[in-house]
């Protein structure tokens, strides 16, 4: 089977450290109630969200401890599920918003991507468990 171009395994550790740091920073900022201007708050929020997304992306594209054709196939299935979910969500949610809120829009790219990552991880680990 064709090999995927994945990051080395050690990147998984970096991604977990980064993700943990960004999540802790988010919680500290929320709890401490630091007084910031609206622009700074927005900038900080965007930086933290981008950081979290980058760490999750690194987690998904970093190779496992032992990557072989079975794990590649599972990874491809999980990517497919996440992609189909993302497109379906993007297409359907604006209609749901129109129905319930009266606005035809997709509220947040961050939530969409977060859910796509969730679908990827759930698919990846459930398929892996099923094949064991």
């Amino acid at each position: 089977m064709e090999r995927l171009n994945l990051l080395p395994y050690r990147f998984k550790k970096y991604a977990w450290i980064g993700l943990f740091s960004f999540l802790v920073a988010t919680i500290i900022i929320k709890i401490s109630g630091i007084d910031l201007s609206e622009d700074s708050k927005e900038l900080l929020k965007n930086i933290l969200q981008s950081g979290i997304l980058l760490c999750l992306l690194t987690l998904t594209i970093a190779a496992g401890k032992q990557e072989d054709e079975l794990t590649i196939q599972i990874r491809i299935k999980a990517f497919t599920n996440a992609f189909i979910f993302g497109v379906g969500f993007t297409a359907i949610v604006p209609f749901a918003n129109l129905l319930f809120d009266g606005e035809f829009n997709l509220q947040s790219r961050f939530e969409l991507l977060l859910m796509m990552f969730a679908v990827f991880f759930i698919s990846y680990y459930s398929i892996k468990k099923k094949t064991e």
């Binding site: 072989d68 054709e69 079975l70 794990t71 094949t131 064991e132």
Partner: peptide, 13 residues
């Protein structure tokens, strides 16, 4: 390959 892959093949999964 990994041991899990051999196990999955043996089980026909």
């Amino acid at each position: 390959v990994s041991r899990q892959t051999i196990n999955s093949i043996e089980k026909g999964k």
